[in-house]
Design a protein around this nucleic acid. Structure first.
Length: 272
DNA sequence: ATGCCGCGGCGCCCGCGA
């Protein structure tokens, strides 16, 4: 018997301001030590990203920042070879919601999909149209990545509740931009290209939430939603070992409203 | 019900998030 090599661990976490969450993020990184970390909602400009304490924990960093809103980053203990800043397909889109990085033979993307609320009553609102257009562009990007044949994964805050078991009260969320028919259909179109929702491939449990609103006692009452996802290309799905939600950070003082999701892959060889 | 909470910012209220 030979021991299996250590899995490659990838995390995704919407931190809701990297400056407000820096201590919590560094504590968690030091304790959990994922190989790759995908961050969203940095809410700071690229130049203002607090790189030093994260580099001190052994991470290389690719950041696409923006003042006040959005902002995404890839952290990697292995060298980052090439970076794509922004979701391709619309040069007029200035929102910092997508950064893609090549790490060895693996491509990873950190994404912060638009919220889309309010969705509009007499036809879709501008925000909801932007969300659906962004999802269509993401589908095009996934199709292009599949054509290259290189193994890849998408991780981040998708702002999509895929199925009724992913929300504490489906009826209450029926009209929300995160759970609307059109949103879920666009998410399914992504999956139908050949991607796998890593968490759902391994677990059929309800109540597996990644977000709890700050308001109304959502966290203590466990009224959450599952909107932070890992979507895996076929070659990466074959290497899927584990996917779990770490509720710990959500219960700490000054928490983000999202908690991290962790992915384990038998893919150590992919990143050298 | 859009406020309840929490964040950033040309700050003492506002937009935004989900």
């Amino acid at each position: 018997m030979t021991d299996a090599p250590d899995p490659l661990v990838v995390a995704t976490w919407n931190v809701n301001s990297i400056k407000a969450r820096l201590a919590a993020v560094c504590d968690w990184l030091g304790r959990t030590a994922p190989d790759i970390v995908l961050l969203q909602e940095l809410k700071c400009e690229t130049a203002a990203f607090p790189a030093e304490p994260i580099e001190a924990l052994g991470y290389n960093i690719a950041v696409l920042g923006q003042r006040t809103y959005n902002g995404v980053a890839v952290l990697s203990k292995r060298p980052i070879d090439q970076v794509t800043m922004g979701l391709p397909g619309d040069p007029d889109d200035t929102q910092a919601r997508y950064v893609e990085a090549e790490i060895g033979a693996l491509t990873v993307a950190a994404l912060y999909l638009p919220n889309g609320n309010p969705p509009g009553e007499d036809g879709p609102s501008e925000k909801y149209r932007y969300k659906l257009a962004w999802m269509a562009r993401l589908k095009d990007r996934v199709a292009a990545l599949l054509e290259t044949g290189s193994p890849f994964l998408l991780g981040g805050d998708f702002n999509v509740i895929p199925e009724p078991i992913d929300v504490h009260d489906p009826a209450a969320w029926a009209g929300d931009a995160l759970f609307r028919t059109d949103t879920r259909a666009a998410f399914r179109r992504l999956l139908h290209l050949g991607l796998t929702d890593a968490y759902r491939a391994l677990h059929s449990d309800p109540g597996a939430y990644t977000f709890w609103d700050y308001q109304g006692g959502a966290w203590p009452m466990d009224r959450g939603i599952r909107i932070d996802h890992f979507l895996l290309s076929p070659a990466i799905t074959d290497r899927l070992v584990d996917c779990r939600i770490d509720r710990g950070p959500r219960g700490l003082p000054k928490a983000s409203d999202h908690t991290p999701v962790l992915l384990s892959l038998a893919a150590d060889d992919l990143v050298g």
